[in-house]
């Protein structure tokens, strides 16, 4: 197992390098540059700016410089927001997104697993249909609808929670966390139910029941182990997405997280910022996929031994 994990970690380097390379050239192909604006800068200013940021060097040179910078931990300056370097921006924003992501993940898992397990125990009963219908509602209502709806009810009508903000008022994290977690909760619920049904119909569960093990023990110890398999496969990359922030939720609630940076950078063609945020996201995807794979193996003795 240790060797497997080490090998996977070693794989990070070429994969990240591939992502950096593809992204680097991809963003340069996209029309429009970082300095295009409604008021078009004069050709002289454009040249000056490009010279300032070494964008006038040949592309391969820029690429090599960038990769060399990466190995020194230098992600370059932000073209659009020059007050801080890309590294500083990421260090400023990532913790916020990660915190929100953790809450979202918690909401998703608590609600999702509970609902999914409950539904799988009595298939096609009310206990199944009610949570699953709710989960479907959660899936049908995208976060750009759910967020404003929650604000409308809890902030504007009831006045219980703040409209937006982060660390600016007590309880201002509740609505973003709920909005972010809701959709994932619905996914988790449905995937759990599917996985659980799959497992609970299998022989070893019958054996366990026949052995006279308590139902709770059967479900949690034996059922959930196999039942959460698809959830974990789904959550690997989803967790990376959650932790690097959701553009929609961060925009609705004005959370100063990385998710907005990620999308805005793409729209601004802030080359270095795109590269930086992509790199963070990619690293997290790799880490979480690894974690998911390990968790899958750990939960499933058959894969573990293979």
């Amino acid at each position: 197992m240790t060797r497997y994990i080490l090998r996977r970690i070693l794989e990070f380097v070429p994969v990240l390098l591939a992502i950096v390379t593809i992204t680097f050239f991809l963003v340069r192909i996209a029309p429009g540059g970082p300095f295009d604006a409604e008021r078009r800068p004069s050709p002289q200013v454009l040249r000056q700016l490009e010279a300032h940021y070494h964008l006038d060097a040949p592309l391969y040179r820029q690429y090599l410089d960038y990769v060399a910078g990466l190995f020194r931990g230098d992600l370059g300056p932000s073209f659009k927001k020059p007050s801080r370097s890309v590294r500083e921006w990421i260090l400023l924003r990532l913790p916020v997104s990660a915190e929100l992501g953790c809450y979202g993940l918690a909401v998703a898992l608590i609600i999702g697993l509970a609902a999914g397990v409950m539904a799988s125990l009595r298939p096609n009963s009310a206990l199944d249909h009610v949570p699953m219908a709710l989960a479907m509602v959660g899936i049908c209502i995208p976060s750009f609808v759910l967020g404003p709806l929650l604000v409308l009810v809890f902030s504007l009508w009831l006045g219980w929670l703040p409209v937006s903000g982060w660390n600016s008022a007590p309880l201002d994290k509740v609505l973003p966390a709920l909005t972010l977690g809701a959709m994932y909760a619905a996914y988790v619920a449905r995937l759990t139910r599917g996985g659980m049904l799959e497992v609970l119909s299998q022989d070893f569960i019958r054996t366990a029941r026949a052995k006279g093990l308590g139902e709770a023990r059967v479900v949690v110890k034996h059922g959930l182990r196999g039942g959460v398999q698809p959830v974990i496969a789904f959550l690997g990359p989803a967790a990376a997405g959650l932790l690097t922030g959701s553009f929609v939720v961060e925009t609705i609630f004005q959370v100063p997280g990385l998710g907005r940076e990620f999308i805005e950078a793409a729209f601004n063609r802030d080359y270095t910022m795109i590269m930086g945020t992509t790199l963070v996201f990619a690293s997290l995807v790799m880490v979480f996929n690894l974690v998911a794979d390990i968790a899958q193996a750990w939960l499933d003795p058959r894969i573990r031994n293979a």
């Binding site: 794989e11 994969v15 992204t23 192909i29 996209a30 990376a240 990620f262 999308i263 795109i274 990619a282």
Partner: peptide
């Protein structure tokens, strides 16, 4: 499984991580 699985899944990782907005814009170009 094995090496091929590993390569195939890393390819998936790469595609996951690419910035989708830029990807679509370039596709359109």
């Amino acid at each position: 499984g094995g090496r091929i699985d590993s390569i195939m899944m890393r390819l998936v990782d790469i595609l996951y991580a690419l910035p989708f907005t830029i990807f679509v814009i370039v596709l359109m170009v």
